[in-house]
Every structure is written in structure tokens, then in C-alpha cells.
């Protein structure tokens, strides 16, 4: 990755974060914490990794992305809007009556959303079905899914992991956003999912453990994923919940609460300063 590419991705990620803050502020609710922890991943996926076409969201041979942790829709929507799937100003309609931007992703209303999700644990299984469909139909698209580290407490996640491994879904990549916090607090205290990587390996995955805010590490992990044959791939990424907005960082309280007007102004000032710095202004 060149320095210029890194700079560009960082700029885009900052804009994705601004989209998350703007949309949840406008909605007066939503889930900023986990959207911000995954903002760099959303950015990398939609601006580098996924073979998708905003002009043809239903293109049959596209790569698929399933947001298994569907409550972080604000992050996905911001990335989709910036990538050109729909107008950025529509982000302000998030969660409002008659808006197509539902609180959790709806595949039938939002261009670019490949699966309706929101009930934790289900998206990864749906993604497995999509990966299996590629095998059945002889297509070479890849399927990606993003899960929360609290979400993997759902038993169905491990049913899906068995399935991915049993059917050798090497076109499938599960990403775990290990920000360490869920609604009720520290994941290790609520119901420890650790050790995550060891569990995934035991279920037959090849696993990469990375810093989810380092684009070079994200790139290396996805490169490795493409080389693996005969087994599914997982990326366990260590992240900071609320990343990029200092007063939201590492605070479970920001899981599902929107910034008020004052907090919004503070968050936008911080992100704007960051953006100006990245753009060298």
C-alpha cells in the first residue's frame, strides 16, 4: 500500500466516521460505538476489497457483504453513500419514518445491502449460504461478513462456523470486531468469548489477528485470505469502540446512544480537525 493510498483511505474513513456521527445525531438514536470501531473496516471493504458496482448493486457476480452485527448500520450506510450507492444527504434520514435507511439493514430498500440483518447470529449463516451458492453455481465471487465480539456469544454463530468449515467455503471470510464491549459492559465480564482466534481455528478456520485500525494489516489479512484453499478464513481485529471520537472511545455507554447537539458539535470539530490534518490543510 502506497503512502498516498493510505492517506486516501484514512481520509475516507474519517468521512465515514462523520457520516456515522451526523446520521445518529439526526436520528437522535442508533449505534455509534460499534459503527466507529468498524469504520476503518467498512472503508477498506467498500473502497479496496469488494468487487462491487454502485451503478449495479444487484450485479450477479459481485462480492457480497453481510453485516451480521446489523445494529452498526450507520457505519455501513456511511460507507455505501460515500462509495456512491445513494446520496450522502440521505444519511440524515436514518431511522426516520418512511426512510429507506431502516434502523437495521434492509436488503430490499437500501442499494448495496446484500442481506437484511439485525438479529444477532443470523447474518453469518446467511453469508455461508451465499458462499455455498457461489460454489453450486460455479461463480468466483467472495462473501464477507462482519460480526461483533458480543454477537459471537450466540450459539448459531458456531453452527455457521461448523458449516463453513464442513463445506470448505474458501470464498468466505468472517471478520470479528473485537472492540471488547457490549451493551452491558466488558465482553469478558458479561460472557467471555475468549480465546476467539483459538476457537475459530478449532472450528476449522485459518485466522489472522490484526489491529483493525491499521489499513496495512487489514490489507495483508485480506491478501492472505485469498491464498487459502479448502477452508474458510477469519480476521479477528482488535479495535476501539467509538474510535475517532475521543469521548466515545472505550465506553460501553456509547453502544446505542446518539450524541446530543453539544456532543455532536464536539465530535464533528474533532473529526473535522482530523480530516484537515489528513488532507494537509
Amino acid at each position: 500500500m502506497t503512502a498516498q493510498q493510505l492517506q486516501q483511505l484514512s481520509i475516507t474513513a474519517c468521512k465515514v466516521r462523520m457520516g456515522i456521527v451526523k446520521s445518529t445525531h439526526a436520528a437522535k438514536c442508533g449505534h455509534p460505538g460499534g459503527s466507529l470501531s468498524a469504520a476503518d473496516m467498512f472503508t477498506y471493504l467498500y473502497f479496496k476489497e469488494l468487487n462491487v458496482d454502485p451503478q449495479a448493486p444487484q450485479w450477479e457476480d459481485r462480492d457480497r457483504f453481510v453485516l451480521s452485527k446489523g445494529h452498526t448500520a450507520p457505519g455501513l450506510y456511511a460507507a455505501l453513500a460515500l462509495r456512491g450507492f445513494f446520496p450522502e444527504e440521505d444519511l440524515l434520514s436514518l431511522r426516520k419514518i418512511d426512510s429507506y435507511l431502516q434502523g437495521h439493514p434492509n436488503m430490499n430498500t437500501v442499494p448495496g445491502v446484500d442481506m437484511s440483518t439485525g438479529s444477532l447470529g443470523q447474518g453469518i449463516s446467511c453469508a455461508c449460504g451465499m458462499a455455498l451458492a457461489a460454489k453450486v453455481r460455479g461463480k468466483d465471487y467472495r462473501v464477507y461478513t462482519l460480526l461483533g465480539d458480543g454477537e459471537i456469544q450466540e450459539g448459531q454463530v458456531w453452527e455457521a462456523c461448523m458449516f463453513a468449515s464442513h463445506y470448505k467455503l474458501d470464498n468466505f471470510c468472517a471478520i470479528i470486531d473485537n472492540n471488547g464491549l457490549q451493551i452491558d459492559g466488558d465482553v469478558a465480564k458479561v460472557m467471555s468469548p475468549y480465546p476467539i482466534a483459538d476457537k475459530l481455528e478449532a472450528f476449522g478456520f485459518r485466522v489472522a489477528q490484526i489491529d483493525g485500525h491499521d489499513f496495512r494489516q487489514i490489507e495483508d489479512a485480506f491478501r492472505e485470505a485469498r491464498t487459502v484453499k479448502g477452508q474458510p478464513f477469519a480476521i479477528v481485529m482488535k479495535t476501539v469502540k467509538g474510535k475517532g471520537v475521543s469521548f466515545m472511545e472505550n465506553d460501553a455507554g456509547w453502544h446505542g446512544v446518539a450524541p446530543n447537539d453539544q456532543q455532536y458539535a464536539g465530535a464533528m470539530a474533532e473529526l473535522s480537525a482530523k480530516l484537515a490534518e489528513l488532507e494537509g490543510k
Partner: peptide
């Protein structure tokens, strides 16, 4: 074209959803 999902009905229904979303 027959896939045994094991004793995992929850996973099976969502796998079916993913297959249907992909044209099968």
C-alpha cells in the same frame, strides 16, 4: 445439490436465506 446442515436448524434456515438471496 443436497446439503446436510447437521442438527443445526437455526443455521440451516439462514443458509437457505443466503442461497435464495443468491438466485437458488
Amino acid at each position: 445439490r443436497h446439503f446436510n446442515c447437521g442438527i443445526a436448524e437455526a443455521d440451516m434456515m439462514c443458509v437457505a436465506a443466503g442461497l435464495a438471496a443468491s438466485g437458488l
